[in-house]
Nucleic acid binder design. Structure first.
Lengths: 248, 248
DNA sequence: GGCTGACATATTGTCTGAGTTATCATACAA
DNA sequence: TTGTATGATAACTCAGACAATATGTCAGCC
C-alpha cells in the first residue's frame, strides 16, 4: 500500500484550457482579488472574457468548487466561499498561494503546521521505518550534500528526504500531505535563494533527523525535525508585501 | 478573517447530477472497487452507463481529478491515481471513505493524525483564544450536556466545540482542516451509536480541555485534548469488515 | 400590517453532436 | 540503438439549445 520509494511519476503534463483557467481564477481568489462573498460574473460573460467556451469555463469552476474555493448555485451565481471552507492544504491551492506572494502571517502559519505534523511524522517514522526507507533517506541526503539546494537535483533530493519520511509513517493521511508539503518546501526554498544566495548549511539539521530515525528514537527524531523546521523558517526571508490586497 | 462563531451555513443543497456522479465514482474508488492504475471506461460508454450526458460525466471527472483521485489525459484515458496522490483530508473524500465502511487501519490512522493536529491546536488555542471563543465553547459544552450525543442538537454542539477550538488557533491552515475534522467526528460518532446505545460520558474529557484553554495553559490543553481523542478512539467500535476489498 | 402562495426571472445545470488536439504505439529511417 | 514520421484513440473544446432551480415580487387573504 504505502509503496516504497518507487518514484515513477508522470511528468506533469501541460495544463489544458480548463486547468489553466481554474489556475488563473484560483490565484485571483487566494490573492484576495476576489473576496469571500463576492460573486463571479455569469458563465456567459466570464467565458467570453476568457475567450473560451462555456464548457471549459464551467469545468474550471467545478475544479474550484471541488477545492472549496467557490460555490455555484442556480439563480444565485458562483460565490467565493469563506476562507474557512478553502482546502488550503490542497497542493494546487498551496501552489496558487505561493504564486501570489503570500504575506508573512500565512508563511508563519504554514511553518507552524508543518512543525506540528512533520515533527510527529518523524517520530512515527523512527518507530516504523523499514530498511528500504532508511536506504532511500540516506541516498537523498547524499544527493543534497553533493548537489546543494542551489541546483534542481539538490532540491529534488531534499523533497525525496521529506517524502520518504512521511511515507515511513505508514499513515495514509499523513502520506496524503506529501504533495502539499512538497509544494510548500519547493516554494519556500525558491524564496530563500531568491533573496540571498548563501545561507546556513542545511545538512547538519537533516543529518540529526536521519540519525534519530536510524536509531529508532522517536523522541529525538521529533525534536530534531522540529529544530529543522524552525531553522528553515528563520532562513526564509519575509516577503515584503504583507499588505497589498483589496481590489476589484 | 477568522470570523467568530457566526454560524450561518447554507443548508447544503441537494447534489446536482455531476455531484452525485462524482460521489458514486469517488466511493467506488476509495472503497477499492477501482484500484490505482485502473482505467475508467471512456467518456462515451461511462456517460451512457450512468445515463447522463458526456458534459455531466466530464464535470464529475473534473471534480475527482481536483481531489487527486484520478488523472485524465487524451489517448490514455482516465486513470486512478496512486493513493499517495489522493487528498484524503478533503471533506468530500473523507465522507466517501466513511460511506464505504473503512477498515480498522484507516480509522486508527485518522485518529492518530487527529491526535497530533488537534492536540497542538488545543495548545495554540489556549494561548490565543479570545473571550468570544471561550464563550462559544462554553455554550457548546452546555449544549452537549443538555442534549447528549444521541440527538442531532447534541452532536452539533460537539462539532461547534471542536470547530471553535480550531478557529481559536488563528492559523488558517489548521482552520481549513475544520470541515475534514467535522466529517470525521460526525461519521465516527454515528458509528459509536450504531453499535452500543450507551457509552462513557464524554463531558469530563471536554471539560478538562475547556478548563485548560480558559486558564490559558497550553501544556495542559494539549494533554487534555490528546486524552480526549484517545478515549474517543477507544469508544469507537472497530468495523468488523477489515478485509472485504478487491473487486471489479 | 403581516402572512401565504403563485409566478416571473435570472442563473446555473444538462443535453446533443460536431470538430480539435494531445499522446501513445508502431513503423520506418539513420 | 537512436531518432523521426505516421496513425489511431482518447480526452478536449466548441456552439447552441432547452431544463431545472432558487430568488424575489406581488397579489390576495387573514
Amino acid at each position: 500500500m504505502t509503496g516504497p520509494p518507487t518514484i515513477f511519476e508522470p511528468p506533469a503534463r501541460a495544463l489544458r484550457l480548463h486547468g489553466s483557467i481554474a489556475r488563473k481564477l484560483g490565484i485571483s481568489i487566494v490573492s484576495g482579488q476576489y473576496k469571500p462573498g463576492d460573486l463571479l460574473n455569469g458563465e456567459i460573460s466570464s467565458s467570453e472574457q476568457f475567450a473560451v467556451s462555456r464548457t471549459a469555463y464551467r469545468e474550471a469552476v467545478r475544479i474550484l468548487a471541488a477545492k472549496g474555493l467557490v460555490d455555484a448555485r442556480p439563480k444565485v451565481g458562483t460565490r467565493i466561499n469563506s476562507k474557512s471552507k478553502w482546502n488550503l492544504l490542497d497542493p494546487d491551492v498551496l501552489v496558487w498561494i505561493f504564486e501570489s506572494e503570500p504575506d508573512l502571517d500565512v508563511l508563519n502559519s504554514l511553518f507552524e503546521l508543518r512543525n506540528v505534523v512533520e515533527s510527529a511524522a518523524a517520530g512515527f517514522a523512527a518507530a516504523r521505518r523499514s530498511a528500504a526507507h532508511l536506504k532511500a533517506m540516506r541516498l537523498a541526503l547524499r544527493g543534497m550534500a553533493t548537489h546543494t539546494l542551489a541546483t534542481e537535483a539538490g532540491r529534488q533530493a531534499d523533497l525525496d528526504f521529506h517524502t520518504t519520511l512521511l511515507d515511513a509513517t505508514a499513515n495514509p493521511f499523513i502520506i496524503s500531505l506529501t504533495s502539499g508539503v512538497s509544494a510548500a518546501i519547493n516554494a519556500t526554498t525558491v524564496f530563500k535563494h531568491r533573496k540571498g544566495p548563501l545561507r546556513r548549511d542545511p545538512m547538519p539539521d537533516h543529518m540529526r533527523v536521519f540519525e534519530a530515525i536510524a536509531a529508532k528514537n522517536p523522541v529525538k527524531a521529533e525534536q530534531a525535525m522540529s529544530d529543522l523546521i524552525v531553522l528553515a523558517r528563520e532562513d526564509t526571508p519575509i516577503s515584503r508585501n504583507s499588505e497589498r490586497r483589496r481590489a476589484r
